[in-house]
Design a protein around this nucleic acid. Structure first.
Lengths: 193, 193, 193, 193
DNA sequence: GATGAATGAGTGTTCATTCAT
DNA sequence: TATGAATGAACACTCATTCAT
């Protein structure tokens, strides 16, 4: 039991550091302190182990997202919470978030890969969530009259950039989360200095 | 001569689609319509071919960036041009920009890799350029009083997101470049509706 | 376990017949009736396999040499035993002795190679052993007054020639061991017809 | 013209240092300061170049041997000259003599190789020459009554050891040629102290 | 004479995976 | 649960050699 968890944790770290193809089953086993065949006892293969990690991370991410649906006073407060949540996720699961940036790009050409399915469904969720927020905010006069679809895309790009901050080399500038929220607030809200 | 160029172009595409480790020298040769040893006639190895592609792309990118230094009326016009330039670069070198997102993350742990050196120096250039713009704009009253360092980081993240748009799955929403520019304008400029 | 020994034995033969560079890992595996990767399961590579064989042979050789230190009546009897021992070694480990002649010369330029280290230490042992014998024999009047150092070198050359007899094409002349011993006896002993 | 000679000289050195298989045509060309295809202009291939070197060396060796047939007072003087000649040959053609020790062993299994033919014919010449010397010397009472065939073999082994002195690691002991001659004189001559 | 470009065949080595225990 | 031994397929790379010029 403990060995399986060691396997998964080590694999997550190595997949993140070296990419999927750059990580060997021998390397995972060695660094996890187990033997190689044990991987095949717990998983059907390397791909299965990778997918397991990805799905676990996706599940955690989805659970966090669901908590945002609870009412909040303003629409922008919802968006602000969404942004802050992404900063938290990176702290909580650094390997897993890096892994998506490191190992997934090369797998997105396969529409059946777990990477593609995960990324697609998360994007759909974000798109829906942000569309509703913007629409409601614009209608109620909270937001400026921004173009709906394109602005949603810009916001999603910004959230992705946050998740990839280690890849992007975003140094740990103090107040980065706050600055990101403020950047968006000034751009969206009607009454901002 | 023509064969070398076929080699380089094919390699750029495959490295982008499959990542560095996921791309085989046999695959490059096959798809380029040449034999494998030709790679070793023109380059010292797979890594050398990869670096050659990266450095060529980095050079083109740097040249484009340098054109921005010419005077422009307002500070924001400089930033707007920078954003639009990144949208152009993606059109111009789609493989090379995807390649950086696909093959580089796993190589950034090595401080001596061409990936790391390229990314680092480009980030430094952008940081310097954006810092000057913001500082000047704030002093002259063109911009709101935004926190300097953190806002620079947010802008760089946004530029990176633009370069990685295919990785991020940013659909070809009409008017995305304009929307991105406007998103920033509203956030930065004092007199914006 | 049995497969590893088959690997080692076959490798010794092929290295001897074809030299180090002329022997391929594919050839070793084929003739040993195993697959190529097994070499890399038991050894870190071709070089490691080669060194293993060399070191095993060197160990056996050293053990045989040590048995000579036991008292013998005359100094020449010691030398005679040493010569006969070399004839025995060739019978006992034909591949390994040929291997040293076939695969080592090209490796002696590297001072850190196992070939160089092995050959050097064995030469030192022989030099020491023969020096003591000659010195004692000359002092006691058993030997003629031969120049010490140069004669030791001549004797070592002769021992090497014995080990390399197959390389040198020394046919199996009946009584060759005896003739070699007698050749030296006549040259060294005072009272020889 | 000069380039061909550079090619041959460099090749001789490299074949000696690295063995036949360990020497690459690219390496020869590089170190000779010419391009690879030039080898194929002057020779039909690597093997042909190797054989050319070997045959040139064998010719020189044979010419030297022929000079020994001229009358000399005693039989042992002939043998002494033969021994000294071998010490000279090593000085004169160090690469070529090392080459025979380094590259030939692995080729002696092929009876049609130039190595095999060269070595065989030289051995035959030496065997004939030494047999005549010993026979005459024993008949005339100059030599002790040594067993003919076996002693010839021992002497040939000693000559080979001289040629291979660099391989055998025989240090440049002062007076080694003289000591070798004396070693044999004491063993063969009737009236030696 | 001499070379830049190119290649078919093979090199040592590593991979994810399996199997008997 | 767990492993030591083993493997088929592929890997990056090198070889001696050729050919058009």
């Amino acid at each position: 039991m403990k060995k399986k968890e060691a396997l998964v944790r080590t694999a997550a770290r190595l997949f993140a550091e070296r990419g999927y193809e750059g990580t060997t089953t021998a390397g995972i086993a060695r660094e996890a302190g187990v033997t190689e065949p044990l991987i095949y006892y717990h998983f059907t293969g390397k791909e299965d182990l990778f997918n397991y990690i990805l799905e676990r991370a996706a599940e955690t991410y989805s659970e966090r997202l669901e908590t945002l649906k609870a009412d909040t006073r303003t629409q922008f407060e919802k968006i602000a919470k969404l942004i802050r949540l992404h900063f938290h996720i990176v702290e909580e699961m650094p390997h897993e978030t890096y892994l998506i940036a490191s190992a997934c790009p090369a797998r997105l050409s396969d529409p059946d890969s777990v990477c593609t399915r995960t990324v697609t469904s998360q994007r759909a969720w974000l798109k829906d969530f942000l569309s509703r927020c913007l629409k409601a905010g614009i209608r109620s006069g909270e937001f400026k009259k921004v173009p709906l679809e394109a602005t949603v895309i810009v916001l999603i790009a910004l959230l992705n950039a946050v998740l990839r901050q280690r890849v992007l080399g975003l140094e740990d500038v103090a107040g980065l989360p706050a600055a990101t929220v403020e950047f968006c607030r000034r751009s969206l809200l009607k009454n901002s200095a």
